[in-house]
């Protein structure tokens, strides 16, 4: 793994853990659209951004 890959892998790990932990803890009683629905949607959008950056220099 290159050092930049390691950095991104860590970011992804944190996002994945949040996607498992937050909905079952602090959001478990938040029965609104801005509860788990919004969290998972936003985390996925962040991941799409992360993938954009990881692959930024795949130009050839």
């Amino acid at each position: 793994m290159t050092s930049s890959e390691r950095k991104w892998a860590l970011v992804i790990l944190v996002i994945v853990l949040s996607a498992y932990i937050l909905p079952y803890t602090i959001l478990t009683n938040e029965a609104t659209w801005y509860g788990s629905f919004l969290l998972w949607t936003v985390l996925t959008l962040i991941i799409i951004g992360v993938n954009y950056f990881i692959t930024r220099d795949w130009s050839k």
Binding site: V16, S36, I47
Partner: peptide, 9 residues
């Protein structure tokens, strides 16, 4: 939704 988006992640 969480299930399918974790797949996507």
């Amino acid at each position: 939704l969480g299930f399918e988006l974790i797949y996507l992640i």
